[in-house]
Amino acid sequence: MFRLMQKHPVNSADSLADGLSLCMIVRNEEKNLPKCIHSVKNLVDEIILVDTGSRDRTIEIGRNLGAKVFSLPWTGDFARARNFSLVQATKTWILVLDADETLRSHEHSLIKELISGNLPCEGFYLKLVNYFSNYPDDYTIDAVCRLFKNKPQYRFSGSVHESIAPSIINYQGNSCIRPVEVHIDHRGYLNQSLLKQKSARNINILDLEAANNPTDAYNLYAMGTELFQQGNYEDALTQFRQTLSLSAGSNVTADVYFKMAVCCLELAQYQQGLKILKQGQNIFPDFTGLWYLQGMLEFRQGNYQQAARIWQQTLDMGDPPWHRYTFPYGIGTYLSL
């Protein structure tokens, strides 16, 4: 029997207790769930687990690990499931994790300090470390708002690649979310067969979204990202071009320029890639990744001295600010050597 989503939030400020709620949505995560929960067991005060249709032992494992388990029919909307989990939380702060993610135990004390202090902010950007192989330096860094105050006006948006930051910023402004040196280690990309299944699922969801709202810039970006991860660079480039025409100045624009340049590199469209990078560099001069890719494009054309000069510039710049840009680790250091 499913517990249906309530029409109005139950977690009003007056009914919340001090502490930290872990909110998760899961499906068939019996292999990953124990490691995830054990990584925060001594940090959080309650665990909210929303299951969207598991056929394995996920629900049983969650209950055995102390989680409050709720069931919700899957409708193809990640934001809806996330928001349902937030409604169940009873503590003043919320931490959001996926089952294939873990926190580092030595950073628990910093999190406790952040949520018990009186900092004038509503949430924190954490470092999402996405591992792509078993090599320790093969990862990218994303800034994600996964630790935030439990308020009914703060809700996720986006059926795929959902985010809560826009709603917090809409109420409080950009400065209300601060970056902190807390890491979320994400190893979901290590399973390539599962990654392909999830990507195909996401594309189906985004196709439905596009039919209803073909000019939604974030959905176009999300679709481009899925195609990019599949290696379909030509179609990804088309999606990113449409995104750029609709989202200049948004928080995904820098990543769009970066991914468009990579597409051009893979498609041997070198001059087009250089043109794209010049536009991006004018807007984001401190994004080292754009300069690194310029060096790659010059190198592919045999302009070795020019490439070396540009890569020296990236070494001088160093890695870009992690809370502003998504980038491969080492792009401002050893990758440019």
Rank of each mutant, 00 (worst) to 15 (best):
L4T: 08
L4F: 11
Q6K: 15
S15C: 07
S15P: 00
D18Y: 10
E29W: 03
H38G: 00
S39H: 10
V40Q: 03
K41L: 15
N42R: 15
V44A: 08
D45M: 01
E46K: 07
I47F: 10
V50A: 07
G53D: 07
S54A: 10
R55W: 09
R55P: 00
E60G: 00
G62K: 04
G62Q: 06
L65R: 12
A67G: 06
K68F: 08
P73T: 04
T75A: 01
D77Y: 04
F84L: 05
F84N: 05
T90M: 09
L95V: 03
A99F: 01
L103I: 02
L103W: 05
E107K: 00
S116R: 10
S116G: 14
L119C: 02
L119V: 05
L128Q: 08
V129R: 13
Y131N: 06
S133I: 02
N134I: 06
A143E: 11
C145Y: 01
C145T: 10
L147T: 09
K149L: 13
N150E: 06
N150Q: 06
K151N: 11
G158W: 08
G158V: 08
S159N: 04
V160Y: 13
H161D: 10
E162P: 03
I168K: 03
I169K: 14
Q172E: 14
N174A: 13
V180C: 05
D185C: 12
Y189M: 10
N191V: 01
Q197F: 05
S199G: 00
N202A: 15
I203V: 12
I203P: 01
D207T: 14
D207H: 13
L208D: 12
A211H: 11
N213E: 14
T215V: 13
D216L: 03
Y218T: 02
Y218F: 07
L220Y: 04
E226W: 04
E226Y: 02
Q230C: 13
Y233S: 02
Y233L: 02
Q242E: 08
L244R: 12
L244F: 10
S245Y: 06
A248S: 11
A248E: 14
A254V: 00
Y257T: 01
K259A: 05
C263L: 08
L265T: 01
G273K: 10
K275R: 12
Q279E: 11
I283W: 02
G289Q: 03
M296I: 09
L297Q: 07
L297H: 04
L297P: 01
L297T: 04
E298M: 10
R300C: 12
Q305E: 14
A308Y: 07
A308K: 15
R309W: 05
Q313E: 11
T314I: 04
G318E: 02
W322R: 06
Y325S: 03
I331Y: 12
I331Q: 04
